[in-house]
Computed example of a mutant assay.
Amino acid sequence: MQDKNWKVGELSKLTGLTIRTLHHYDEIGLLCPSFRTDAGHRLYSEGDIIKLQQIMSLKQLEFSLDEIKEFIENPKYNPIDVIEMQLKKLDEEISLKKN
């Protein structure tokens, strides 16, 4: 059985991200498709979609694309550590607003 691959337009519809955003992620090396057709069209694997979900989650936590790339490329990357960093940051912001 062959694994499913998604074209950029299909991935855009699936995730709600624009094609332009997906192209940008590829250009900066944040999310490069696993495959390309002979004509050069991007094909994303299931693993790419898992990585994109992590990217989208980190974006929702207001990390910059540079920070996200740094996290994901780090061999010691642990999503729990990143969430704890974000919680600490939010606690600090709340504390500042109370004062």
Rank of each mutant, 00 (worst) to 15 (best):
M1I: 10
Q2V: 14
Q2W: 10
K4V: 15
N5H: 03
N5W: 04
K7D: 13
E10H: 07
K13W: 06
K13P: 04
L14E: 03
T15F: 13
G16T: 02
L17S: 10
T18G: 06
T18C: 05
I19P: 05
I19F: 05
I19N: 06
I19L: 07
R20Y: 09
L22D: 08
H24L: 01
E27I: 04
I28H: 04
L30K: 02
L30H: 01
L30A: 00
L31F: 12
C32K: 07
C32Q: 07
C32R: 06
P33D: 05
S34E: 01
S34I: 00
F35E: 11
F35T: 13
F35S: 10
F35K: 12
R36W: 03
T37E: 02
D38L: 04
A39K: 03
A39E: 06
H41C: 00
L43Q: 12
Y44Q: 07
Y44R: 08
S45C: 13
S45R: 15
E46Y: 02
G47K: 15
I50F: 09
I50E: 08
L52H: 11
L52A: 13
L52R: 11
Q53Y: 12
Q54D: 15
M56P: 05
M56K: 07
M56V: 11
S57F: 04
L58Y: 12
L58E: 14
Q60F: 14
Q60S: 14
L61F: 04
E62Y: 11
F63C: 11
S64T: 15
D66E: 15
E67W: 00
I68R: 05
E70K: 06
E73G: 09
N74M: 07
P75W: 06
K76E: 03
N78R: 14
P79N: 11
I80T: 14
V82Y: 01
V82S: 01
I83A: 02
E84H: 00
E84P: 01
K88Y: 06
K88Q: 09
K89I: 03
K89A: 07
E92A: 00
E93Y: 06
E93N: 07
I94P: 09
I94H: 11
S95V: 02
S95R: 07
L96E: 14
L96T: 08
L96S: 13
K97R: 07
